[in-house]
Write a protein that binds this DNA or RNA. Structure first.
Length: 484
RNA sequence: GGCCCCAUCGUCUAGUCAGGUCUAGGACAUCGGGUUUUCAUCCCGGUAACAGGGGUUCAAAUCCCCUUGGGGUCACCA
């Protein structure tokens, strides 16, 4: 049995999209599980949509997710180059062969002419298929057309027989001879279309298992036609259900950030994203839904792929992330937090591991690293930079005896040891003495030193701050009161 | 519109292929309650679904057909 070789072949238009990440993940899992090879190829045959920086972004996003490829862009391999724009001569050789054998032909229609033909034909018969010329134009005519400034494309001559492709998830799909159109395989700019380049590369690179989104299913026959014309082998085919947004429409960037990188920036853990993405179209069966990356390699089964569309549920992703954060060990959290901080500008000292570990411990229960920053940021910033939240001030300081409590507490704080234990003892003793519940003590303090009602436990908050900054901030709070 | 695909709580799904054990299970969301110095976490409990109609069968969420609904695709984009 031949070793399985899968690939992910994105076109470089920006950061990796969650849909692309899902396709990459499944191809990766299929290869890993079979002890096969996973390849990464860049399909950059559309010069108008090309974004050179996107290649590095996609690679970075994949690596962040833990999806490593064995062969392809950036890592090399025996079948390169791995970007199609560097393989143009190869596609031309195959096109030449098709042309010489009468399996392909030149066409010179302009976009406007084609639009007109389509419009007329659809009005009359409801459909449109490019009318194959009686006689195929040769090189001389192509030259002449080019000289006249007309576009010159190459179209494949479809066979006059039905074409059937066998998909492992959706079954056999047959396209009757009468519904096949002589589609374009080389564009007027000399670049191959996706159909040609994709098929040639899969053959040359030894890809024998194609797994991609269902939006490709209805045009798989085109690749089958090309493979047949070129004498290529047919790979195993597996199409994945589509990923929909919350409204049930195909997931698009309009629905908010659906780039993997956006989730990284938002403070998500890659293992949570991977786990969640794995469930988009894959049904493990039973009640289990939490899987580590290693378990995914172990448990993933192509037989358990769904045919129904999956929905991208951000709420559930958030919940997965919350759980993953709670389940992760401190070393793992530290590394992930540092990655997060490296992407943002915050006053939290990203280089101080001991401090970061303490912050992590103080922030158990966060849902994303963004929560952690929102909660602790002000503790590490300047004492005079943060604003006092008017609502917090009104509710916690002005409504009760908040200011009085602060004024009374300040000298006691100034005289105590600065440890969580000592602070706890001090505040509790004060509470007993005054007959106050901890809420009446902790909240005024919290607002005084952070400007808001949200921070880690009051003891940890004060310890992070240090005695000096705590006293400065309490003074500032009291001063702002008198200032009105 | 042609062709293709899909259909269990609001969402993802277990169960469907091998019909009975399903008064339909879980998770997320939601609602109620609890723990707690804030937020978040956590704990307990509740509401909530087999799209509709025909068959087949002793028996159907499970098999068949139709209807309805949803999605995809029909590019010199991939």
């Amino acid at each position: 049995m031949e070793t399985i070789k899968t690939r992910f072949a994105p076109s470089p238009t920006g950061h990796l999209h969650v849909g692309g990440a899902r396709t990459a993940l499944f191809n990766f899992l299929i290869a890993r599980q079979a002890g096969g090879t996973f390849l990464l190829r860049i399909e950059d045959t559309d010069r108008s949509r090309h974004d050179e920086s996107a290649i590095a972004k996609i690679c970075e996003d994949l690596r962040w997710l833990g999806i490593e490829w064995d062969e392809g862009i950036e890592v090399g391999g025996p079948n390169g180059p791995y970007r199609q724009s560097e393989r143009l001569d190869i596609y031309r050789r195959y096109l030449r062969r098709l042309l010489d054998e009468g399996r392909a032909y030149y066409a010179f229609d302009t976009a406007e002419e084609l639009d007109a033909m389509r419009e007329r034909s659809r009005a009359e018969t409801g459909g449109f298929r490019y009318p194959r010329p009686e006689r195929f134009a040769g090189e001389e005519e192509a030259e002449r057309a080019r000289a006249e400034g007309r576009p010159v494309v190459a179209r494949i001559r479809c066979p006059d027989t039905d074409v059937t492709v066998a998909d492992e998830s959706f079954g056999e799909i047959t396209i009757p001879a009468g519904e096949q159109e002589d589609f374009i395989i080389q564009k007027a700019d000399g670049y191959p279309t996706f159909y040609l380049a994709n098929v040639v590369d899969d053959e040359l690179m030894g890809v024998n298992f194609v797994c991609r989104g269902q939006e490709f299913l209805d045009q798989t026959w085109r690749q089958a036609v090309l493979r047949e014309a070129l004498g290529f082998r047919e790979p195993r085919l597996l199409h994945l259900p589509l990923i929909m947004d919350r409204h049930g429409r195909k997931l698009s960037k309009r629905d908010g950030d659906v780039d993997v990188h956006a989730f990284r920036r938002a403070g998500y853990l890659p293992e949570a994203l991977v786990n969640f993405i794995a469930l988009l179209g894959w049904r493990p069966g039973g009640d289990r839904e939490k899987f580590t990356p290693a378990e995914l390699v172990q448990e993933f089964k192509t037989e358990r792929l769904s045919k129904a569309n999956a929905r991208f549920d951000r709420e559930k992703l958030l919940s997965f992330n919350t759980d993953a954060l709670a389940a992760a060990g401190e070393d793992r959290l530290l590394a992930a937090l540092k990655d997060y901080l490296s992407l943002h500008s915050t006053p939290i000292p990203a280089g101080d591991d001991a401090l970061l570990r303490a912050v992590l411990r103080a922030c158990r229960g966060i849902r994303t690293f963004a929560d952690l920053v929102a909660k602790c940021e002000v503790l590490f910033g300047p004492d005079d930079a943060f604003q006092y939240d008017p609502q917090a001030v009104a509710k916690v300081l002005e409504k009760g005896a908040g200011y009085e409590t602060l004024a009374e507490l300040r000298p006691r704080l100034a005289a105590t040891d600065w440890t969580a234990e000592a602070l706890e003892a001090l505040l509790e003793a004060y509470g007993v003495e005054k007959g106050l519940k901890m809420g009446k003590i902790a909240q005024p303090l919290r607002v005084a030193v952070t400007g808001s009602t949200v921070s880690p436990s009051i003891y940890e908050t004060l310890v992070f701050l240090g005695k000096e900054k705590t006293l400065v901030r309490i003074s500032r709070c009291l001063a702002e009161r008198s200032a009105g």
